[in-house]
Simulated scan of single mutants.
Amino acid sequence: MHASVLKYFIEVASCGSVRKASERLFVAASAVNRQIHKLEDELGVELFDRLPTGLRLNPAGERLLKHAQETLHQFQVMRTELDALKGERTGHVKVAAMDSFFEELLPSAVEEFLQIFPAVTYTITSIQPMEVAQLVMTGQADVGLAFVGRVPGGVKVMSRAKLPIGIVLPPGHPLANRASLSLKDCAPYPFLRSSSHPVISAALSPDFAAFWDDMEPAATCNSTPLLKRLIMGGKGISCFSKIAFIEELKRGELLWRPFELPALNELQVGILVPTQRVLPHVTQNFVGRMARRLMQLEATAAAL
């Protein structure tokens, strides 16, 4: 319990906001706020200066932050030493994921996991969506994150969320006032393509696959951060799920519009694991935590 309170405090101090900390912790903002007030009451001193722009540590808060970081570090070292005796907190996690997951979901998940399982090592590979299942099936990855439709034998979906692909565009774009978009709507405008290969199979949507293959892109680039900057700079529109654009969509820096294609609007992303082998305890724990984060991401995206 003490460790949880200190973790909440450290996150609020880092974010300068209870709301932002709650999103990173995947805990209700009211619960985080309640724990901060409880901590201040217990210590008999305020820990933050509450400013119009957010929360800022005061001298008492800075002193507690140093203590909290040292305490949690020692706590995790102790847990690792104890659990290493049981062989439950060491191991290697191999993840293959499409690039969108590298913007926020995967970094925050691994960051959290490192706090709890500091002895675990990782191999994390960015790969085209349609290639993820193959890496999981062949054992090159333990966990896959990608769009899921029909999955091959030897692979199963542990958790899934409705996060379909659509068009990402800047505010003020001629298509911005449309509630949904057809492929014909998009055709006249410069398009930024994330890969020369379609992000979904032609079997799922032949029309979309043909559109992808026939276009003359303004740029083809497999870096989501670079494509994000090009879209924000008005250099073109692109096709993505909301996964990589949550913060920009919240701030109104970018817009997302669904396609007028039922097959694309029902598209889900999921966590893929092998069926032919049992994953180690630590990897199963990682999958469970990723599943919770994916459900939270789905809820956040639906509200945008």
Rank of each mutant, 00 (worst) to 15 (best):
L43V: 09
G87Y: 00
L82A: 06
G54L: 08
L57G: 03
H92V: 14
S100P: 02
R150A: 14
E42A: 12
L85Y: 00
L57D: 05
R160V: 04
F75V: 06
G149R: 07
E70C: 07
T80D: 01
V110E: 04
D49A: 14
V45I: 13
K66G: 11
L145M: 10
A109F: 04
S126I: 14
E42G: 13
P152L: 10
K156G: 03
Q115M: 09
E103G: 02
L85T: 05
L64K: 03
L163K: 07
I127Q: 13
D41W: 11
L105D: 07
E131P: 01
L43N: 04
D142V: 09
M78S: 11
A141E: 08
V120L: 03
E81M: 15
D41E: 12
L106F: 02
V95Y: 01
A84W: 15
L135Q: 14
A146F: 00
V157A: 05
M158D: 04
G91Q: 08
F147Y: 11
Q69H: 09
Q134E: 13
N58V: 08
A60D: 13
T71M: 06
M78Y: 12
A133W: 01
F113A: 12
K156S: 09
M158C: 05
A141V: 09
G154L: 10
G91R: 08
A119D: 04
A146R: 00
Q140V: 13
T121M: 01
P118M: 10
A96R: 12
E88M: 14
S100R: 02
V157M: 04
G61Y: 00
K94M: 11
R56S: 11
V148S: 04
E42Q: 14
A60K: 07
D41K: 15
A109H: 07
I124F: 04
E46T: 13
E88C: 14
E42R: 14
L47V: 10
L39N: 03
M137I: 13
A109W: 03
Q140T: 06
R34M: 11
